[in-house]
Simulated scan of single mutants.
Amino acid sequence: MNHNNVFLWEESIPGGCHWSGILRRGLTLRLTDTSGGANAAVLFYNQEEKLERYNMADTLKAQHTFRLAKGHACFSDMGRIFCCITDDTVGWHDTACGLSDSKLIQQKYGVARYQEHRNQMYRSGLDGMLIELGKWGLGMRDIVANINFFSKVIANAAGELTFHCDHSKVGDYVDLSFEMDTLVVLTAAPHPLDTRPTYQPGDIHLAAFVTPIHAVSECKQIAENARGLHNTYRLYHPCGGAL
């Protein structure tokens, strides 16, 4: 981990809980798995026009990948880039498996309601997302395919998916360097394919710092990413110009 970064703010998200906030362009958000085996389900929206949101299909096909890792970018449905992954100790982040819902959580782990269990209740990823989206005037229709940071899922030749339990270790982190003013919505609920028999979602630590110069240089090496970054630049500099 680079200890030279000066964190502007930090926040801890307990396993199963949720968070949302605005990340300005020029800032990097570091997600850290503080307990091992965590899952951070994340969605991105343009802070100024929230109908523009993360697009899983364009992100994957533009970069010819099934997973995300260092050097990859997260595209919007307008051909722009929310952020680049500029550092990553995990090496594989799931893009295809979506969110857990209340029915799935109940089937796998049983029932633990807030009335009886308070902060130890069993929360689903979908419920956490909807709570956070509601704070910004958004709802169910605004939920699209999300990224599951820290989780690894592979597909075999028959298309069957396998979840790798405890893929992420204590202290693993991923840096998201933002090129667009972005609403970030996050839930730390279990991955929908998590194989652990008990409800034990890992904690996530958030920290923001100023993006280092040339941090996105590796991301630009992919031609589609360079074009996406140029499109993003023009959003804030309508008269054109070079990146």
Rank of each mutant, 00 (worst) to 15 (best):
M1Y: 01
M1N: 10
M1V: 07
N2P: 02
H3K: 11
N4R: 11
N5H: 10
F7L: 11
L8R: 09
L8H: 02
W9F: 11
E11T: 10
P14E: 03
P14A: 07
P14R: 12
G16E: 05
C17F: 14
H18K: 05
S20L: 04
G21F: 04
I22R: 10
L23T: 06
L23W: 02
L27C: 06
L27I: 11
L27G: 04
T28P: 03
R30H: 08
D33E: 01
S35P: 05
S35M: 11
G36Y: 06
G36W: 03
A41K: 06
F44I: 06
Q47C: 10
Q47L: 10
E48T: 04
L51P: 08
L51R: 14
E52H: 05
M56D: 12
A57W: 15
A57I: 10
D58Q: 06
D58W: 12
L60R: 13
L60F: 07
A62V: 00
Q63V: 06
H64Y: 12
F66M: 14
A69R: 12
G71P: 03
S76A: 13
D77Q: 12
M78P: 00
F82I: 02
C84K: 02
I85E: 01
D87A: 15
D88G: 11
T89S: 12
T89F: 08
V90K: 03
T95Y: 00
A96Y: 05
C97R: 07
L99R: 05
S100A: 11
D101A: 04
D101W: 06
D101V: 03
Q106D: 09
Q107P: 11
Y109G: 10
G110A: 05
G110Q: 00
V111Y: 12
V111I: 09
V111A: 03
A112N: 14
Y114G: 09
H117Q: 13
R118H: 15
Y122T: 01
E132V: 09
K135V: 01
K135M: 03
G137D: 03
G137P: 01
G137H: 04
L138N: 06
G139C: 06
N148D: 09
F149D: 00
A155Y: 14
A155G: 07
N156Y: 06
A158K: 11
G159P: 07
G159M: 03
L161E: 12
L161M: 06
C165F: 13
C165Q: 15
D166N: 13
D166F: 14
G171D: 14
Y173M: 02
V174M: 01
V174Y: 08
V174L: 08
V174F: 05
L176D: 05
L176R: 02
L176M: 12
L176T: 12
E179S: 12
M180C: 10
T182D: 02
V184P: 07
V185Q: 02
P190M: 01
H191S: 05
R196N: 09
P197C: 01
I204K: 08
H205P: 00
L206N: 03
A207M: 07
V210K: 14
P212S: 09
V216L: 04
S217T: 11
E218T: 10
C219P: 01
K220A: 15
Q221R: 15
A223G: 07
N225D: 00
R227W: 03
L229N: 00
L229F: 13
L229Q: 04
L229W: 08
N231L: 13
T232N: 07
Y233H: 10
R234A: 15
R234V: 15
H237G: 04
A242K: 07
L243F: 09
